[in-house]
Amino acid sequence: MEQKDFIPIVQLCEHYSVEISFFNELHDMGLINITTVEKTSYLHQEKISDVEKMIRIHQELNINTEGIDAVFNLLQKIDSLQNELNKLHNRLRLYENDY
């Protein structure tokens, strides 16, 4: 495990002004993976943008972790559908260019 790829949860709590329990609840719901090394909990840096979205949903919209789970799953589904739509649009262009 590369230490530089992980950020301590305590540091994230201070930076984003959230409680450690918030991260624990996200982890319990399967929204994030927390890695613990020598009694210190870490989050992989690749997940920071997702966590920032979850924190904004929680703080700005006052939505609990169950709601965050639902909203985040819907946002992921929208992204997936948008990608599929783009692929289909590109395939359609190929057929249009042939004629």
Rank of each mutant, 00 (worst) to 15 (best):
N62R: 14
Q76H: 00
I78H: 12
N64E: 10
K87D: 15
R91A: 03
I68W: 04
Q82H: 05
E84G: 01
N73A: 02
I78T: 12
Q82V: 02
G67R: 05
S80Y: 07
G67V: 11
L81T: 00
Q76I: 11
L81W: 15
I63G: 11
N90I: 07
I63H: 08
V71W: 14
E66S: 12
E84I: 03
I68H: 01
S80T: 06
N83L: 11
D69E: 07
G67W: 11
L74Q: 03
I78V: 15
I78L: 09
I68A: 06
K77I: 15
L85C: 08
I63V: 13
K77L: 14
Q76W: 01
V71D: 02
L74V: 09
H89F: 15
A70I: 15
S80P: 07
L88A: 07
H89D: 14
G67S: 08
L85I: 06
L75T: 08
V71H: 06
L75C: 04
K77N: 12
F72R: 05
D69I: 06
I63S: 11
I68L: 02
L85H: 08
I78F: 14
N83M: 09
E66K: 10
L74I: 13
Q82P: 01
E84H: 01
D79E: 11
K87C: 14
I63C: 10
S80G: 00
N73P: 00
T65G: 10
N90W: 04
T65L: 06
N83Q: 12
N86W: 14
D69Q: 05
A70H: 14
A70W: 15
I68S: 06
I63K: 05
E66D: 14
H89K: 13
N64I: 12
N62I: 08
I68E: 04
D79L: 05
F72P: 06
N64W: 03
I68Y: 03
Q76F: 00
K87G: 15
I63R: 09
N90V: 03
E66N: 12
F72A: 03
N62L: 14
L88F: 12
F72E: 01
Q82E: 07
D69W: 02
N73M: 00
H89V: 06
E84W: 12
L75N: 00
S80F: 07
N62M: 14
T65F: 04
L74E: 08
D79S: 13
I78A: 07
T65E: 13
I68N: 09
T65N: 13
